[in-house]
Nucleic acid binder design. Structure first.
Lengths: 234, 234
DNA sequence: CGGGTAAAGTCTACAGTGTAGATCGGGCGT
DNA sequence: ACGCCCGATCTACACTGTAGACTTTACCCG
């Protein structure tokens, strides 16, 4: 198709043939999603970017949906728990901030992270998706929680984290310079009679420190959990 | 197309011509999504169900995406705050449980609720989406919070609520009879070396009372917020 | 009653999608 | 040398969203 496609020689003259592994496919896919959003991830377009036939991709992901799952897994794998850290609370706190950072770096992937597991019964998920769960569980159990309590704690923690991320991303504004103007502009459309509070809060909405808000929420949550733990262990 | 399509007479002999309003379109769309999931909502299929040309739909929603927004809005409209209730805490608690019930009734819509706002700058959202925000804000302000604090409270509250819903739906299992068996089956696939905690917790995962978990989380959250309020008002 | 106007509904057509199935090519073991 | 198999490709099909032209319907005014 191209010009010098016969380049199958050993040293392909510095041209492009990273020989198409699963990771190569997934990371190019991630690139594409990051750059243009989920809908832009098309078999044909991805094939184009990789310089191969769209059909080749099916060797490495058995459908487009599976490919999306792969992308989500790839992103999640960037997270990891340092298993030997001192305090479970600082652990969870660090992890939360890492996750937040990751979400801000790949905002287009967040819908996948949040949405895809809904269609997959828990046991059938890609392992990469379950690893954080397992890690946190053992972290908590090591910290002294009863296993079943650890599950509750995990739910409370992750629920809050997901919720926060979604909230923060919803208010995300691209250009921090013009943000306030844009916001006002957007809100100006609202009928003043029906939305007085919202309009009045426009400036407050404009300067929103997600990191701090996350941290505050975490302290509340974590101290509460710690109290619960103290009560158990006596 | 059909057989007796000439039926345009005043009384259409009990046949079918609910004359295609926006609400008719949206609620049929919701039906379809509830029954078969988001991907099943296709212009052509929806047209078929409504007995009209797919193109007609564009009179009532200017694109498929807009149609999805409409569906989300329609679902959200089923929620409402009784404005005259006694305590803001019981208000928020009731609202949370209503929302949870709604989410369980329309699980396929939840991804829309959670995801669509991410692509729409806050000011440009369909009004139905913003109304809950406004209502909660005025509820909180009426309860004595400073407006900017009300915003924080709203974020904490909704963040938690969204997170909980997502968590609960992820563990949702269709048939409560076989659920445990299925779950074990699913989890059995996990390598025992890598996921010991998770496998051990299978039974605990199986009996998960979402409502109670929600309620517990709410009490923590709400009492925390109340303390904050008391501090402000002195 | 006739005619004009705007809306509501339809038809056709196009570019693009995911993917099943057959086909090709080239490196390996024997 | 042969056969084999696996990765990559090609072709084809059913289906998608939607632009633009067209037809039908409803109604209002003279």
């Amino acid at each position: 198709m191209g010009s010098a496609n016969r380049a199958k020689s050993r040293r392909s003259s510095g041209s492009q043939k990273p020989p198409l592994s699963r990771d190569a496919v997934l990371s190019k896919a991630l690139e594409l999603v990051d750059a243009e959003g989920i809908d832009a991830l098309t078999m044909r377009r991805l094939g184009q970017r990789l310089g191969c036939d769209p059909m080749s991709l099916y060797r490495y992901a058995e459908s487009r949906a599976a490919l999306l799952d792969g992308v989500a897994e790839l992103v999640l794998d960037e997270l990891s728990i340092q298993p030997g850290d001192p305090d479970w609370k600082v652990q969870l706190r660090l992890l939360a901030h890492d996750f937040r950072k990751l979400a801000l770096q790949h905002p287009h992937v967040v819908p996948l992270l949040v949405t895809r597991p809904l269609s997959t019964p828990l046991g059938m998920r890609p392992l990469g998706t379950l690893r954080p769960l397992e890690q946190i569980l053992s972290l908590l159990i090591a910290a002294g929680f009863e296993p079943s309590d650890a599950l509750h704690v995990y739910r409370a923690y992750y629920g809050f984290l997901y919720g926060h991320i979604l909230n923060e991303l919803q208010e995300f504004i691209v250009d921090p310079e013009e943000s306030e103007a844009l916001l006002r502009l957007g809100l100006h459309r609202l009928p003043a009679k029906d939305f007085p509070r919202l309009r009045a809060l426009a400036p407050a909405l404009a300067d929103y420190d997600g990191s701090e808000e996350l941290d505050q929420g975490l302290t509340i949550r974590l101290t509460g959990l710690e109290a619960q733990l103290a009560r158990r262990t006596g």
